[in-house]
């Protein structure tokens, strides 16, 4: 379909979402006085058992919260940042007791690992990368990919952690000579990596060899796309993109997520699904997260909206709570919960 046809076909009906499909499980407040910037869930190992924990990040403090039997959360560890503010948490799958964070002002200047060995609550930070960092992503098999620099002066590097988060191995990938915006792992293909670039290309790497396999130019309708998820099926690549810089159209509002199909052999692509807001909702994409076939976004209106990419429409809308706009939304990696945050440090956990 052309973009226009897809928009018409997938415009959700007014009554097609169910606000009841998000149920509040628990909530807590991070008492930090600085602005809340990110939230994440991860497994943390202590006293011989693994627990699903929550990580919260404010500009000057990152905290680890463990669950109590009463559906409450207890802060057990904090890391403080006085020089450069925290921008985001960078979850690294398959590593226990290790949190990575990106620090910077508008752009990432440092990536640090935050460590805490079992039974020892002393604060430890290790500087992993510094420079003009454009993109970073934690990958399965304890890997972290980052790109430093722009255009021809770009270095794309994979760092592999030991199981305990310690000693690491490094490998370079061939840079694409265009600035990388985001990375995405291809689900089920641990040696494949995608990147989106500032000139609307999706690039594909072989992580084992470091080869740059293909550049795929995607529709110029939306600039600066972010790739949230990718999987390969029947010889085709399916990628879920969001469009934070898309302009609002009068007829369809702002496009939030797009499912794109790519033939990696021919570099041809076609959009198959465009997720827009249900009628009656306004706002643009602020930030979002995709897990399996469910996508969630915070809108500039302060509302969170959820789409089922298989059904092709919005399934839940969560308006601001207690007169406070939402500013963060993340899917938990430890269960099917949605983590929703407000700038003042309130974190709400919903079952979807």
């Amino acid at each position: 379909y052309s973009t226009e046809q897809t928009e018409i076909a997938d415009l959700p009906a007014c009554d097609s979402w169910n606000p009841g499909s998000l149920q509040l499980v628990s909530k807590f407040k991070n008492p930090s006085s600085s602005c809340s910037v990110d939230v994440s869930a991860m497994w943390w190992e202590g006293a011989g058992a693994k627990e699903p924990c929550i990580i919260t990040a404010c500009e000057d403090i990152v905290s680890l919260w463990k669950p109590l039997a009463t559906l409450e959360w207890e802060k057990v560890q904090s890391w403080h940042f006085t020089e450069i503010p925290v921008l985001q948490i960078v979850p690294v799958p398959d590593v226990f007791n290790l949190i990575c964070v990106a620090l910077g002002n508008l752009e990432i200047r440092e990536i640090r690992a935050l460590l805490c060995s079992s039974g020892d609550e002393s604060e430890t930070q290790v500087l992993l990368k510094s420079g003009n960092i454009k993109a970073v992503l934690g990958l399965t098999k304890r890997r972290l990919v980052s790109s430093i620099g722009t255009f021809c002066n770009q270095q794309v590097q994979i760092m592999t952690f030991a199981e305990d988060g310690g000693s690491k191995d490094e490998q370079l990938l061939m840079p694409p000579d265009e600035t990388i915006l985001t990375f995405a792992e291809v689900q089920g293909m641990q040696d494949a990596l995608l990147g989106t670039t500032t000139v609307n290309n999706i690039v594909i790497w072989n992580l084992k060899t470091g080869q740059l396999l293909k550049k795929v130019h995607i529709d110029d309708s939306y600039q600066a796309s972010v790739c949230h998820r990718a999987y390969s099926e029947m010889g085709l690549l399916f990628v879920v993109l969001s469009h934070p810089c898309a302009k609002e159209s009068q007829a369809f509002g702002s496009p939030m997520f797009q499912l794109l199909v790519i033939n990696p052999k021919t570099a041809q692509s076609v959009g198959v699904l465009l997720c827009c807001l249900p009628q009656g909702q306004a706002g643009r994409f602020l930030e979002g997260d995709v897990k399996d076939h469910i996508a969630a976004a915070v809108l500039t209106s302060g509302t969170i909206a959820v789409w089922d990419l298989l059904l092709g429409h919005c399934t839940a809308v969560l308006p601001p709570v207690s007169d406070q706009n939402w500013s963060l939304v993340k899917w938990s990696s430890t269960d099917s919960h949605l983590l929703a945050g407000q700038k003042d440090g309130n974190i709400f956990i919903y079952r979807y």
Partner: peptide, 23 residues
């Protein structure tokens, strides 16, 4: 949409592109 618009498809695209790309 038809996958015919995307050209010939290969189930082994990753291996084939890896053998064609410069090392």
């Amino acid at each position: 949409c038809s996958t015919a618009d995307l050209g010939p498809i290969s189930l082994n695209w990753f291996e084939e592109l890896s053998s064609e790309a410069p090392p």
